[in-house]
């Protein structure tokens, strides 16, 4: 337990988490601090592309033997999580088809920013982790969204004139975040470590600084969503904290089984526990317009993201340490 407190403390005092706190405080204090939309977009582009690049370069040096088991575990999570999230939200939460599917899509997918925060967290503790983890991010990003949308389609046939599957899939697979992540992976993979070295002063060294700035903005965005909390209700608040803990534990356990290190298992736990708020909201808004963004965005941004950032990361790390003995 003492270890958990210590890890929590270290996490809380990192510039990243503190910047997030500053963003929250700025909004609650009604400061006029505002990030221009383009800056937010530019930072997102930078972060996603950088994650892909580094992951691809590492993947180029990874043997398939080390990679296939974690990849399989990730895919399994991507398929299973949206299914049971949907079931829980429908049966226990009483949500409608569209809302339940929208939330399931978010929780099955992944938050690249939480992922980045987990890596910098491990680095600050000098704990190693496998380099190919960003590939797992790419693997987890899309399947859950597709499955959740498919579930919604089966339960509730699309309205006439609604978007067809072909159009939806096209939009999803060509969305900015997917293109940046997969494209970055491909470029990093093809260029290998030599290619990455050419751009490292831009994409590797300043990464943590950019992440800190981005988290400052995320703090402001999350705090703006706090007032939608009441609309979200108690069940969603519990869901937004309980499910990440469950998924995190599952991810850590599967990672350990798949042969990942302590750091790697922790990150798989983080991936499972995180909820998307870049790829999923855009896809869901187009595919499930009846779903209320107050539910899925509030749960993902205002409940799960802060929880994972502040409490989740240390928690999943301690779980990973404990499982590895």
């Amino acid at each position: 337990m003492a270890d958990l407190w210590e890890t929590l403390r270290l996490g809380l005092l990192s510039p990243m988490v503190l910047a997030f706190g500053l963003g929250v405080a700025a909004t609650l204090l009604k400061s006029d601090l505002k990030f221009p939309g383009e800056v937010y977009t530019a930072l997102s582009i930078y972060l996603l592309f950088a994650i892909g690049l580094k992951g691809g370069a590492e993947l180029a040096q990874t043997a398939l033997a080390d990679f296939w088991a974690p990849a399989l575990a990730t895919l399994a999570l991507g398929v299973a999580v949206p299914v049971w999230c949907y079931a829980i939200l429908r049966r226990l939460g009483g949500f409608g088809v569209a809302d339940a599917a929208a939330l399931a899509a978010h929780y099955g997918s992944v938050s690249a920013v939480t992922f980045s925060a987990s890596l910098t967290f491990l680095e600050s503790l000098q704990l190693p982790y496998e380099g190919f983890l960003p590939t797992l991010v790419a693997l987890l990003e899309v399947p859950a969204i597709i499955i959740a949308l498919a579930i919604a389609r089966r339960q509730q046939p699309a309205e006439p004139g609604g978007a067809g599957w072909g159009g939806l899939l096209h939009e999803l697979l060509t969305s900015k975040s997917i293109v940046l992540l997969l494209g970055g992976l491909a470029i990093g993979f093809l260029g290998g470590p030599a290619g990455l070295a050419q751009v490292a002063p831009f994409f590797v060294d300043p990464f943590r600084g950019a992440l800190t700035l981005f988290l400052l903005e995320m703090g402001m965005v999350a705090a703006q969503r706090f007032r939608d909390f009441r609309k979200a209700g108690g069940f969603l608040a519990g869901f937004g904290i309980g499910m990440p803990v469950l998924h995190g534990a599952l991810g850590v356990w599967l990672g350990t089984l798949a042969g990942l290190s302590v750091g790697g298992s922790m990150v798989l736990g983080v991936l499972a526990a995180s909820a998307s708020y870049i790829a999923a909201p855009a896809a869901v808004r187009l595919a499930l317009p009846q779903a209320n963004p107050s539910y899925y965005l509030t749960a993902s941004l205002a409940i799960t993201f802060p929880f994972n950032l502040v409490i989740g990361l240390p928690l999943y790390l301690e779980l990973a340490r404990w499982l590895h003995g």
Partner: peptide
């Protein structure tokens, strides 16, 4: 043109997509 504003429903759908 890029625009910002509020409507009767006050629903903000996504930060990433813009206003």
């Amino acid at each position: 043109t890029a625009a910002r504003g509020e409507g009767s429903r006050g629903v903000r759908a996504s930060e990433w997509a813009g206003q």
